[in-house]
Computed example of a mutant assay.
Amino acid sequence: MTAKDFDQAVCLEEYAFKYRLSEVEKLERKEVMQKREINLGSFVDNQLAAKLHILPLQLFLGDEKLEFGGVAGVATWPEFRRTGHIHQLLMRSFAEMKEQGFTLSMLHPFLIKFYRKFGYEVTNYTYKYDLTPKDIPTYQTAGFCKRVAFEQEKATLKKLYKDEASQYGLMMNRDDWWWEKRVISEQDTIIIYYNRAGDALGYLIADINASHLRIKEFVYQSIDACQGLLQWLKNHDSMVNSITLVAQPNHSFAFYLDNPRIPLIKKAYFMSRIIDFSGFMKKYPYITAKEKVRLLFKLEDEHASWNNGKWLITFEDRKCKQVEKVDQATNVDINFEANINSITALLLGSESLENLQIFGKIIVKEEKIRWDDISQINKPHLFDFF
């Protein structure tokens, strides 16, 4: 797609996703396409039949920052559905992302089984607690909560977020534009918790609608900060009847509530796909072995042929030292055989090797060492949406 096709793209988006944009919003959307997206379209007689957008983004993976392609805005006119347009666009997107140096791709699926056919696998979940102010104990903390504007405390929020994001895998490395356009909205309230010395130790982003309070992000670096932010929620007891809190998978504060018997809904959220296996393994940060380790992956990838085959990966001193495509290999410590979906789930930590084996998704021969003894994978998580 080129700029002359953007009006058609906006029109298709409005129809497919059932919303309407004002003229100003249409101009803003087309500017984003021009400046921040790689736009792919499939045409029939000069009419845009289907489209998708690749967002060049960056994520945290252990100590690494990894460029990745976020796939979004996938849409087809109903009269052109089930005729191969999206198949062709996804294949083109994989080649485009490889050329751009993106070793990983992520997307929010409209139908999980559809994207599994193209090598994507579920890697991220949302964790939502439903509670009321009465469920929260009364806390007395040494610090205090302060309502702030994003521009006023931008650096503080970005640091708190980055500290949290680096504890997980697949969390986005947000730039200022993303914070301002995709994270913070006009109706949001930002609360930062400070200790007695004035150090920021946590934050939340909330919006209130009628008698419901929704917490979009809840980050804390100490028990005092957690309790201080929870007390801020409790102080809405005369204003709201219900609270939804979007949490991280490692959070366990519900145990300490007055009423721990609150619903926790875990729901599949984003899917990921390794685009360039060789490039991805060269930066893979989760191997902890100091001694030399040789891993052999027999990989099947129907839609990215460059990934197919046997890959011998050598790690030493926790770093990838060599990636080579081979016909045969000797002195291998662990052999893996699977498709790109299961290898993605394993390497990104969304599913354990044991479970993948139990459900017949991977064949493994641990010849000399165990995978769990040489790897330590940060649990994947994602606050954002695209």
Rank of each mutant, 00 (worst) to 15 (best):
K234G: 02
P263G: 02
I215H: 07
L213Y: 00
R261T: 00
E217V: 12
L245K: 00
N241D: 12
D258M: 03
N235S: 10
G228L: 14
S242M: 08
I262E: 07
A225I: 11
I243Y: 08
H236Y: 13
I215A: 02
K216I: 04
D258I: 00
F255A: 11
Q227R: 15
D258S: 12
N209V: 01
I265A: 01
F218I: 12
H236I: 04
A225Y: 12
I223G: 12
N209R: 05
N209C: 01
Y256S: 12
A254D: 14
I223E: 15
E217H: 06
L264F: 02
S242E: 12
L213E: 03
D237G: 05
I215G: 06
A268I: 01
A247S: 15
Q248N: 10
P249Q: 05
K216M: 14
R214C: 08
V219L: 14
N259S: 07
C226G: 02
N250S: 11
L230F: 08
L264K: 08
V246T: 15
F270M: 15
L229W: 14
N235W: 09
K266L: 01
V240S: 10
D258P: 01
R261A: 10
Y220A: 08
H212E: 09
P249A: 13
N259F: 07
L257P: 08
L230W: 06
I223P: 14
S222P: 05
C226A: 09
S222Q: 10
F253A: 04
V219P: 02
V240W: 09
V240H: 09
L213F: 00
D237P: 12
H212R: 06
V240R: 15
S238G: 13
V240N: 12
M239A: 13
A210F: 04
I262A: 01
N209Q: 06
R261M: 08
I243A: 07
F253I: 03
P249R: 05
V219R: 04
L230Y: 02
A247P: 06
F255I: 15
Y256T: 12
L229I: 14
I208C: 10
K234Q: 14
G228Q: 09
Y269K: 11
V246S: 10
V246G: 03
P263W: 01
N259V: 05
K267Q: 06
I215K: 00
L233W: 01
V240E: 09
L233F: 11
L264R: 05
Y256I: 05
G228K: 01
T244K: 05
Q227H: 15
A247T: 14
A247I: 14
K266T: 14
S238T: 15
D224N: 14
F218W: 07
T244P: 00
I215N: 03
L213V: 06
I243H: 06
F218C: 14
Q221S: 11
N241H: 09
L264D: 00
A225D: 00
H251P: 01
Q248C: 04
N241Q: 07
N235H: 09
Y256V: 10
D207H: 04
I243F: 04
W232M: 04
V246H: 13
S211Q: 12
K216S: 13
L245P: 03
H236F: 05
A247Y: 01
H251C: 02
V240C: 03
Q227K: 15
V240I: 13
Y256Q: 13
T244D: 13
V246W: 06
Q248G: 12
A254W: 12
A247C: 11
I208M: 10
N209D: 15
H251I: 02
I215Y: 00
I223Q: 15
L233S: 09
